[in-house]
Design a binder for these strands. Structure first.
Lengths: 222, 222
DNA sequence: TTGTCGGCCGATCGCCGACAA
DNA sequence: TTGTCGGCGATCGGCCGACAA
């Protein structure tokens, strides 16, 4: 899974620590987000904090819903120096060569049988360049989703006044991804120049189960 | 689940022993049908046979596929007298007051958009009596499936020459049950006079997993 | 008696510009 | 610039009798 696509789907508010960074683990915050209460070892008070080092970060996406999540492996490290420039959420992200655009689906976008109104900025900066000498200008755009599956859309510039639309292929995408008004769609042109597409569902999917392995933690506590 | 509907779905070749009957348990046959090899206790050679008494028989149907199966509880009983009239597969079934009819779906039956050709015998002996004074004779028939869900069909007697057909409602049933040509449908009028409907899938579903509990067996071996 | 086919009619899908926010 | 609407043509679902196996 392309980390840039992952970040675009997760949204600008989400920052991930780098491998090797020192971070603070909050059991209570963890428990509040977990679907089922993690079984903390007795030696670990839920209200305490644990200084840790990041062993690995894996960017993943749910097979069913396309929702993105990360698996972060932590190693308790009481001696770690908490460098605010390294591990804090305010750390600057890597310079991102990719361009992305997110739009919340309107009723008309999600309506079965309708098309998708492409904001001009998205069409002009993310999509492949359209041949405006045609009348009307039209092209097929291909976009890879988080699973690497390629989706095909008819992109047309028409109407009075002129606007960009996705028509053929859009309805199928909405149905397959089970999108509804309020969900967001993300278009991204990655460093390789490929067009990618992701989804960001509205709060409905707040059942984001936080699956948890406390192996390192318990090993350290033993 | 109505035992009569269960038997109609299972087919005439399937006979079940009654509670209290003496039966012979074949571990090898059991193992050959099981999805995962049962963990037999060491004291039980796979090639041996065990004389047992039937403690209980439960008639069940898969929630997803409607495929019927039974859970039979056996108690090892070395002293049991194997009465051939009681426990053998050749034992006469109880006098069955219900009338049932099974038909393998043709291509035309399963074709999306088509109806279902009802064999005359089924329409005249299983379905509610049709009012032939109408032109054409038509009625709504309701049929309960193995889960107790009621399905609604339009039953009409038309065409030249006249034949019985299910039209409206049939397509929905085929799609919901994911039926294809070669699968069979079972109509049954039970002792209470209710019309029931079941399915019997063709060999595709041979993955019928045999879930197994060896509790009684191991308890007896201990 | 009943399986398959083509005809046909109505419902839905989905592309379109008009308009207004 | 873009969200929503009504129009409308193409497609599809599904009911029908004809015909033959």
């Amino acid at each position: 899974l392309d980390p840039q696509l992952w970040h675009a789907c997760a949204g600008a508010m989400v920052h991930m620590p780098h491998v090797g960074a020192s971070v603070i683990y909050f059991p209570q915050g963890h428990a509040e987000h977990a679907a089922s209460l993690p079984e903390f070892p007795p030696s670990l008070a839920i209200t305490c904090t644990v200084l840790c080092r990041v062993l690995s970060v894996k960017f993943l996406a749910d097979t069913e819903t396309d929702e993105v999540y990360a698996r972060i492996c932590l190693q308790p490290d009481p001696l770690g120096d908490l460098d605010p420039h390294e591990g804090s959420p305010a750390s600057p992200t890597l310079p991102d060569k990719s361009a992305s655009f997110a739009k919340t689906l309107t009723q008309s976008d999600a309506n079965n049988g309708g098309g998708f109104s492409v904001p001009r900025y998205c069409a002009e900066t993310i999509f492949p360049r359209l041949d405006y000498s045609q009348d009307p200008p039209v092209q097929i755009v291909l976009a890879k989703d988080v699973h690497g599956i390629v989706w095909k859309f008819r992109h047309i510039y028409r109407g009075t006044p002129r606007r960009h639309l996705l028509t053929t292929g859009w309805s199928n995408f909405v149905n397959q991804k089970k999108l509804v008004a309020g969900d967001a769609i993300v278009f991204l042109r990655n460093a390789a120049g490929e067009l990618c597409v992701g989804v960001r569902r509205s709060t409905r999917g707040t059942t984001t189960s936080v699956n948890t392995s406390l192996w390192h933690l318990t090993a350290a506590a033993a």
